[in-house]
Design a protein around this nucleic acid. Structure first.
Lengths: 154, 154
DNA sequence: GGCGAAATGAGACTCTGTCTCATCTGTGCT
DNA sequence: AGCACAGATGAGACAGAGTCTCATTTCGCC
């Protein structure tokens, strides 16, 4: 296990900077997550780890995802289906558009939600502390692949 | 069971109009839901039903919530904790501000999200079909109750 | 190299949600 | 009012997600 082709993933770096130990399981998971094209569930990570015989336990996957979510290295999505999924991401407040076909997710920087939040606060009297905005649709690739929704269908 | 003090909840009405049978369990649940101040989970409904000896099974609670969600008579929230909760609501697209202290939820009519969605679509190339916006904070009552967050705390 | 604290894996456990299937009950029809 | 039948129900088995405990391992520091 000497050949560690020197590329600490951003996740590993984040863990390190936050003072977490860089253990083998965490490195493995970081690398697995880096490989994910779209969003992924905890269960999928567990499977992926088992398939590659990485010897990472289920509990560790959950624990690591929790840590990573705290660090903002990963964000938890609530899919319309009710499932919880994750996407790797940069640690800054932002939102995602999630492709409902392939699961790929793109980050959106600032969508100018601020004024809306302020307006809501004014209307309702709530102090709005936190929010979650999730967008679902089709990514450019899936849009292109799909023959275009003519109204032929009945 | 003659004394049904004539107030079919909006939920019962919605069920009826959609062609669902107005069964005893559904009426019970409709009334329980109407009593909920804030959001509630499926488990809470199950408990409430059992405590009142309404004889409504767990499966029925879940099934009914599904139906009601379809009808838009109830909306499912994904709380930051990861729990799934529901709030009764009017059947029209809208969003909620949820009080993270007492769980009460207020509907927000139209927050002018449209232009934002369009902008995101332009930026990312996605076709945005669906979205979910959830706001969390403190409701006016809880704000008033809390002594005000002076910076005394360390 | 050795130490202590942090992290881990195994597996029990809890909780949510789904499913099946035998039974029951609204509803429309007569 | 009575009937028939599809739709709805409850009980409980089941599947999966996530948590917890605890004995053992491992990382990071000295």
């Amino acid at each position: 296990m000497v050949v560690r082709m020197g590329d600490p993933t951003p996740i590993v770096t984040a863990l390190d900077r936050a003072g977490y130990r860089l253990t083998e399981p965490r490195r493995s998971l970081a690398s697995l997550i880096a490989d994910q094209a779209g969003h992924f569930t905890a269960a999928e990570l567990v499977d992926a780890a088992r398939r590659r015989h990485l010897g990472v336990g289920r509990a560790t996957v959950f624990r690591t995802l929790d840590v990573l979510e705290d660090l903002g290295a990963v964000e938890r999505l609530d899919l319309p289906s009710g499932e919880h999924a994750y996407v790797g991401c940069e640690p800054a407040h932002h939102h995602h558009v999630v492709c409902s076909n392939c699961g790929r997710a793109s980050e959106i920087a600032d969508v100018g939600l601020r004024p809306i939040l302020r307006e809501v606060a004014r209307q309702t009297g709530y102090r709005v502390d936190d929010h979650r905005l999730e967008l679902f649709g089709l990514c450019p690739a899936c849009l292109a692949a799909r023959p275009r929704p003519t109204s032929i269908t009945a």
